[in-house]
Computed example of a mutant assay.
Amino acid sequence: MNSSLFLSQLLNGVQLGVLLFLLSSGLTLIFGIMNFINLAHGSLYMVGAFIGAATYNASGSFVFAIIAAIVAAGLVGLLLEHLVAKPLYRYDHLYQVLATFGLMMFFNELAIVIFGSRPYYAAIPSALEGAVTVFGSQYPVYRILIIVVGILVALGAWYLIQKTRFGMLIRAGASNSAMVSVLGVNIDLLKKLLFMLGAGLAGLAGALAGPILSVQSGMGEPVLILALVVIVVGGIGSIRGALVAAMIIAIIDTLGRAYMPHMLGSFMKPATANAVGPAVASMLIYILMALVLAFRPNGILAPAKR
């Protein structure tokens, strides 16, 4: 096994894990506290990617593009919470799924109307081009930036949840939102702020992913599926669980896609192994989720039921 290739793929897995964490951290808090299933969360990721790419192409400032993506996604999230989520809090999850699925289709068509059906170009800033040596292996600077941003966001989320009054209310709301409301906390405002926070993180993930992925209509659905697997494996409502599960799932997926065809090639034809390998690697993620649901249904970092 080539150690340089393995390290590169491992770092790719960590980078994908960071993007999954940014997307799933907000989603798991929304689901855990509001008990609201938001299938349009992937659309907020897409909004961040499009706004970030369009802003960078227009202004030439990558920092401004990131800020614009976060703000735009946060405002769209606030609008969705007020118009769609709030009226549906008291209804069954089926209504939430149908409504947010419809929103997902709406955003996909809106993206085609505004930006066209072809992939929208998002360039890597010139200052972040090139590669650096990491443990003897060359790795792109931009991908390292994504990893660093993810680490900083994870630390910031930990501080927000564990060390601030807002975080205390979030944790209390996750345990018993009705009691928090009775104690005089404006639970509606808390939900709006939380929805904006989750949407902003999704927008940040989209803006960071834009230069290395294809920015196009429907780009939020594949990553949303992975994000849902992350919150199931990590534990609904757990930021720490989302981080750990995102890293595990991303590394399994990345290394599986890189090495599974080679492993299958030892007893299959190369063409067959190359076709089957990525599918088997994807299956490993769902096998992991099935095992977690069977033995730790609350998530790998949630306390086990007695």
Score class of each variant (00 low, 15 high):
N2Q: 13
L5M: 02
L10A: 06
L11R: 03
G17M: 05
G17E: 14
G17N: 13
L19D: 05
T28W: 06
A40D: 05
H41M: 06
H41G: 06
H41W: 03
G48A: 10
A49N: 00
F50V: 01
A54P: 00
T55L: 05
F64W: 15
A68Y: 13
A69Q: 01
V84R: 09
A85K: 01
K86M: 14
K86Y: 09
P87V: 10
L88F: 09
Y91T: 15
V97D: 04
A99F: 00
M105H: 06
F107Y: 10
A111N: 03
I114H: 11
A122Y: 01
A123P: 08
I124F: 06
I124E: 10
V132H: 07
Q138V: 07
Y142P: 01
I144E: 06
G150H: 06
G156D: 03
A157E: 04
T164H: 02
R171E: 01
A174F: 02
S177E: 01
S181E: 10
S181Y: 00
S181I: 00
S181F: 00
K191H: 11
G200L: 04
L201M: 12
L213Q: 10
V215P: 01
P222D: 11
L224W: 02
V233M: 05
A245G: 14
A245S: 15
A246H: 01
T254D: 12
G256Y: 13
Y259L: 05
M260A: 06
H262E: 15
T272H: 12
N274R: 11
A275L: 13
V280S: 08
I287G: 08
L291V: 15
A294K: 14
F295G: 05
A302G: 05
